[in-house]
Design a protein around this nucleic acid. Sequence first.
DNA 1: ATGGCAATGTTTCATTGA
Length: 257
Amino acid sequence: MKLATWNVNSIKVRLPQLLDWLAAARPEVVCLQEIKTEEPKFPRAELKAAGYEAAVSGQKAYNGVAILAASAAVLADVQEGIPGFDDAQKRVIAATVSGTRVVCVYCPNGQAVGSDKYDYKLRWLAALERYLEAELARHPALAVAGDFNVAPEDRDVHDPKAWEGQVHVSEPERAAWRALLEPGLKDAFRLFDQPEKTFSWWDYRMRAFRRNAGLRIDQILLSQDLAERCRGCSVDKAPRRLERPSDHAPVVAELSD
DNA sequence: ATGGCAATGTTTCATTGA
């Protein structure tokens, strides 16, 4: 099965691109971030017509996540948020699809190192770590996909010198990201040889996409069971080339049955 | 040092993103 993650930066604006991409890529599961809409306004009917069911955790204007599953599959045991972590921001939704536990995450941005939002980001990542450890104990087939807002290594950054110490690459954030993997998760992208300078996000400004001035901040983390079944993982840059694109590109992992 | 681009709602600017 094909499992994907895409920060669409508004489901309303990006719906035509999402529908085109689903028709072309035909993933079985898609984790969406920054849908920026409340659940009642989520375009269920359009996605249903395209062959997808959805589990949605939305809010007005900001954040919001969803999991799409090809209609033949069932979205079971849907859970919103991180249990025990009180948070008004809708950043996490989980569901079980065809025996695989899927956790869709939109990690906080962090704004600037040392800011209140940065502290919130670190607290949020620590809470996510505890949650994922518990999920892993319950679900041997676990996939955690989303926008982590952390570039794990310098090779995930177009200009490590310019970014040194900045939010998204600071050592506390990277340590928090690595801690997510410790209970037994692998970064699917790094299971394979990859082209250098592969990124998943490019700033809208300064012609960043044309210069490939990006960061690899969107990832798919796989439990050992799923990592062994993983046959490939790549970034699909095609949607980023379109008119009025999301600033993020989809990341796709291929899992054998 | 700053802004540059995009989306949203509180809209003709402020906030947030990364």
